[in-house]
Design a protein around this nucleic acid. Structure first.
Length: 424
RNA sequence: GGAGAGUUGGCAGAGUGGUCGAAUGCGGUGGUCUUGAAAACCAUUGUGCAGCAAUGUACCGGGGGUUCGAAUCCCUCACUCUCCGCCA
């Protein structure tokens, strides 16, 4: 959520940037918000002063009663009833304004950083760097879903039987490989100073709101209605919400956490080749890194996080490219996002395996995540990134390392798998 | 699932209708003392909103009510704990 302060000071600038970079027109919404905010402040001033008057009368009445001057006290009492009506009305107006303002705020996404390229869709994303792909050499390569069947690594049909499409069953070396990847990612993150966490996989609606999944993406999450809990779509939600309503010690910056969790996504409206095999699942595994930083250093942190995730891909020897998301593809809560995509030779396409974002104060403002500096409380910056999401890594890993007889395991992973080849 | 107890500032814990944003202790910060540290002593120390400021206002789990006045009384919801039951 944007800070009201920013809208008071830079209203037109924000409208323009959202329009130019994200390609959405929020002029009306923001202008309305601006005038409602003015009304709200006026109402508060009225409310405060009548409240103050009532407080004064009340304490006088108290004194009079104590002094035994009942008559005078009763005279003053009569005065209060009108005042109470005024207060009641002002309070009503005030809370109405507050809730309308809140609703409007929920419609406004984060303002993109100046580095974000303008654009409507993923086609406008900027390719920052990319490894050369020699497509000739992959001519005979088959997609991972065929490899999974050939070597009995994943049973998609079995998952359909148990749960439905998008819930694969990993078997044998396929399952071992999953566990190896998780351990590898967690170990690497620990080495970089991220504190490892195991967090709940179901969260309450306050947490969903804090990181911005609610109300914007309600339909994307599984909801256990009886207990009003949501299955997490990413570990970002429970991990970042640790800092909801917290004033952290500035000395603790940067706060770094890593966590492995399954992630659950309804993926309503997805279809076709987009969802084939491991491309898009309802349940998948992911190791997530989260940082909370001082506002001055969050962009350095973002760079560092991107570099770190790249280092994982390099260790896994996977061909990848780095994208800077354009305004139209940028997440609702993000100010700047880099995506990392690995090449899938069996499908001849790039698969997103990590999205690393700086949310600046957008999440922190919802979370009320602050720190103290020079006797003032200020909002911190939050960042997160996948490090990494497993299914597409697995897909790319299987496809890139295939030969006629089997699949080679990257060296970095062998200590974790206990085997260096998959074959029949 | 059944029965009971509870929810107050960073923590512990007083406070049962006005003088309570709230005693006290611990912790934090600054200082005195000290070669340095500890101890001791002194001072300071919640958050939001409005306001240039002075200041005002709100907040004692959430919401509502009674009252001139609510941390305190009433209703309601949520959560936590204890015991019993069930159970990995």
């Amino acid at each position: 959520m944007l800070e009201i302060q920013k809208i008071r000071e830079n209203k037109d600038l924000i409208i323009n940037r959202l329009n130019e970079v994200r390609k959405i027109d929020l002029k009306e919404t923001i202008n309305k918000l601006y005038s409602l905010d003015e009304q709200k402040r006026e109402t508060q001033q009225k409310l405060d002063s009548s409240q103050s008057e009532l407080n004064m009368l009340s304490s006088k009445i108290g004194e009079l009663f104590k002094a035994g001057k009942v008559e005078q006290a009763n005279e003053l009492k009569a005065k209060t009833s009108k005042l109470k009506d005024v207060i009641k009305q002002n309070k009503e107006d005030f809370t109405d304004l507050e809730s309308t303002i809140h609703e409007l705020f929920c419609l406004i996404p984060n303002v993109p950083n100046e580095l974000v390229p303008a654009g409507k869709s993923e086609d406008d994303n900027e390719i920052v760097s990319s490894q050369e792909i020699n497509k000739e050499q992959f001519k005979s390569f088959i997609p991972h879903w065929d490899l999974c069947q050939k070597y009995n690594l994943i049973d998609f049909e079995l998952g359909v039987k148990i749960s439905g499409a998008g819930f694969p069953v990993y078997k044998g070396k396929g399952a071992r490989l999953q566990r190896a990847l998780i351990n590898f990612f967690l170990n690497e993150a620990s080495k970089m100073g991220y504190e490892e966490l195991m967090v709940p996989h179901l969260v309450n609606s306050k947490s969903g709101f804090g990181t911005g999944q609610l109300p914007d993406k309600e339909g994307q999450m599984y909801h256990a209605e009886m207990d009003d809990l949501y299955l997490i779509p990413t570990a970002e939600v429970p991990i970042t919400n640790i800092y909801r309503d917290v004033i952290v010690n500035a000395k603790d910056f940067p706060i770094k956490h890593v966590g492995y969790t399954p992630c659950f996504r309804r993926e309503a409206g997805s279809y076709g080749k987009e969802v084939r095999g491991l491309n898009r699942l309802h349940q998948f595994d992911k190791v997530e890194i989260v940082q909370v930083t001082h506002p001055n250093s969050s962009y350095e942190t973002l760079e560092e996080m991107v570099k770190y995730v790249e280092s994982l891909l390099i260790k896994l020897e996977l061909p990848y490219r780095k994208l800077k998301l354009c305004g139209g593809d940028l997440g609702f809560t993000s100010a700047l996002t880099f995506d990392l995509e690995v090449y899938s030779p069996g499908q001849d396409r790039w698969l997103e395996v990590s999205s690393i974002s700086n949310f600046e104060t957008y999440q922190a403002n919802r979370l009320k995540l602050r720190f103290k500096e020079e006797n003032k409380t200020k909002l911190a910056h939050t960042l997160n990134g996948s490090a990494l999401a497993l299914p597409r890594i697995l897909a790319s890993l299987l496809e890139n390392n295939q030969d006629e007889k089997g699949i080679a395991i990257p060296k970095a992973l062998v200590p974790f798998t206990g085997f260096d080849r998959i074959d029949n």
